[in-house]
């Protein structure tokens, strides 16, 4: 790994919901062009970790820096920062009343204040990148799940983020639609995007991840290269989890 400063730097992150501590001191550094995979059982805090990184969830303590900006500082313009952190959700969350292009250009026009034709140009390019050139004018209900998720990726990409966070991007998809989304993610990796991916697609992790992190009960149990984690994990908890996932 190169020694450049990390794009995402999380230190001692804790998060509680009421009395329930969901993240118990997470340290995580993600470097430019790295693809970090996060796996772990349901309820281990994976989504919460991602959501703290762009402050959809307020951290209880610790520090988070993205591209040299303090995420948790009160003086940070969170809306500007969020443009640099793309996020893709399990349930797509496309705006149902807007076309694919409308979904992609809304933030370009209203946050970056681009002119309509400039926004459209960038929006089309982003949709082109995810292979949906011919679906610009389609509404979400006219698209398959896989296409919807690609529009959601384009929506984040169009803002030219420094890092992309994926929260189980393929979990809501029929098996035959998963490949298309993974292909888009492969292409993004090739073009040098920094990515953090929460997913159960172990084959994809093995092939594409630089690093795999196993989380359980709000802690990082272990991390390493895919071959290490999948081949001979040090911790029993990791091995049990992987056995269960790969068996089921």
């Amino acid at each position: 790994m190169d020694k450049k400063s990390p794009i995402l730097d999380v230190q001692g992150l804790r998060k509680s919901f009421g009395g329930l501590e969901v993240l118990k001191g997470i340290d995580l550094a993600v470097h430019p062009q790295e693809l970090v995979f996060i796996i772990g059982p349901s309820g281990s805090g994976k989504s919460t970790l991602l959501r703290c990184c762009n402050r959809l969830e307020e951290a209880t303590s610790g520090s988070i820096w993205v591209d040299g900006v303090d995420v948790l500082s009160r003086s940070t313009d969170i809306n500007r920062l969020r443009q640099r952190i793309g996020m893709v959700f399990q349930s797509f969350n496309l705006y149902p009343h807007m076309t694919a292009l409308g979904n992609v250009t809304l933030a370009l026009r209203k946050v970056l204040k681009l002119k309509r034709d400039e926004a459209d140009r960038r929006g089309r390019a982003a949709l082109d990148d995810v292979g949906l050139r011919d679906k610009v004018d389609a509404y979400p209900y006219q698209l398959s799940g896989g296409q919807q998720q690609r529009v959601a990726i384009a929506r984040a990409l169009a803002l030219e983020p420094k890092i992309m966070l994926f929260d189980e991007p393929t979990s809501a998809l029929d098996p035959e639609l998963v490949g298309g989304v993974l292909n888009v993610m492969r292409a993004m990796r090739k073009s040098g995007m920094t990515m953090v991916v929460v997913s159960h697609e172990m084959r994809f992790a093995r092939e594409a991840a630089d690093r795999v992190i196993f989380m359980d009960q709000g802690e990082i149990v272990e991390e390493g290269r895919p071959a290490e984690i999948f081949g001979n994990a040090k911790h029993q908890r990791t091995r049990t989890f992987l056995q269960n996932v790969l068996a089921g």
Binding site: N79, R80, I85, G86, L106, A107, V111
Partner: peptide, 16 residues
């Protein structure tokens, strides 16, 4: 709720 989160994650402010 996902609509709010998706929009906020692209940097749209609350009122927008």
């Amino acid at each position: 709720k996902g609509q709010w989160e998706a929009a906020r994650s692209t940097g749209l402010p609350f009122f927008r």
